[in-house]
């Protein structure tokens, strides 16, 4: 172990993250999705005129959903090719010929994309705040924070898939995880209707392995002004971040064992 090893690890991860950031910033898909989201948020004001009753609810719902959905789409579209592209174009060879560990690569890629996603979310939230004239957007920030945690989770899955399959399959897989993750709450109900046996076990396994994304969804509470206790928020954040770490560790393990030919 040479002295100054920690700074070297940090430097390597930092370098890869910075590179990934640069690459994502120059990707057109990012701007396409961002423009779509911003247009949608802008249009929500007009749409809200159609309602009878609270117009603000429509704007807030559409705004938060736009941030969530476009955030997930960006995470998927950019994330699934992160690792794959490097292996496919063989830029990974020169990279790994240097004194970096394989997990540095995965973590660096992940952090780089996460920074881009965070910037996106901040921008969209700012536009939403501008549209909600007179209303405070501060109350909605907890929901936005949990959306970010959800994005961190989805990105981890996207990178995991990207480690061993092509972008199309990886996108399908990640979106499947997202969809099933939001249906996780129904597995409990489903289990009650299924006789115990191996199907029940499968349900249990699914419930535990796949993320329970409804835990990270407090949009309804925030829009209706229902207070979410700090302990619930804390647990949700802890769950999301821990889960992301686990998925990332699996990705590192998969990547470690891989032969590049």
């Amino acid at each position: 172990m040479s002295a100054g090893r920690s700074p070297r690890t940090l430097r390597a991860i930092q370098g890869i993250a910075l590179n990934t950031f640069r690459e994502a910033i120059r990707d057109r898909i990012l701007y396409l999705l961002l423009v779509f989201a911003l247009v949608l948020i802008g249009v929500s004001r007009a749409l809200s005129q159609l309602t009878v009753g609270s117009e603000e609810k429509i704007v807030k719902d559409l705004g938060l959903s736009a941030i969530s959905i476009f955030g997930v789409l960006t995470a998927v579209f950019l994330g699934v090719s992160l690792v794959f592209k490097e292996v496919d174009k063989r830029t990974i060879f020169t990279l790994l010929a240097n004194p970096v560990r394989r997990w540095h690569f995965i973590v660096g890629k992940y952090l780089g994309l996460l920074v881009v996603l965070t910037m996106n979310v901040v921008l969209m939230t700012a536009v939403l705040a501008a549209i909600l004239v007179g209303e405070s957007v501060v109350a909605m920030l907890p929901a936005v924070a949990l959306i970010l945690v959800e994005l961190a989770l989805i990105t981890a899955w996207a990178i995991l898939f990207s480690c061993f399959t092509n972008p199309i399959l990886a996108a399908v897989g990640t979106i499947a995880v997202y969809v099933v993750g939001h249906m996780s709450w129904s597995f409990e109900l489903l289990k009650n209707r299924i006789p115990s046996g191996w199907t029940s076990v499968v349900c249990d396994v699914l419930y535990w392995v796949l993320p329970n994304l409804s835990l990270l969804d407090i949009k309804a509470e925030v829009v209706h002004g229902v207070a979410v206790p700090a302990s619930t928020m804390g647990l949700a954040v802890l769950y999301g971040l821990t889960y992301s770490c686990v998925v990332l560790i699996v990705a590192c393990a998969v990547f470690e064992r891989r032969d590049f030919n």
């Binding site: 390597a12 590179n19 240097n98």
Partner: peptide
């Protein structure tokens, strides 16, 4: 303590030469 050049190298085409070398400098510590 080694340097490597692969066959038919392809490098990130969105970087400039300077950014590219700087990136690898970082990786080399």
């Amino acid at each position: 303590r080694i340097g490597f050049l692969p066959e038919n190298p392809y490098f990130y085409d969105y970087l400039t030469a300077q950014e590219f070398l700087d990136f690898y400098g970082r990786l080399k510590g």
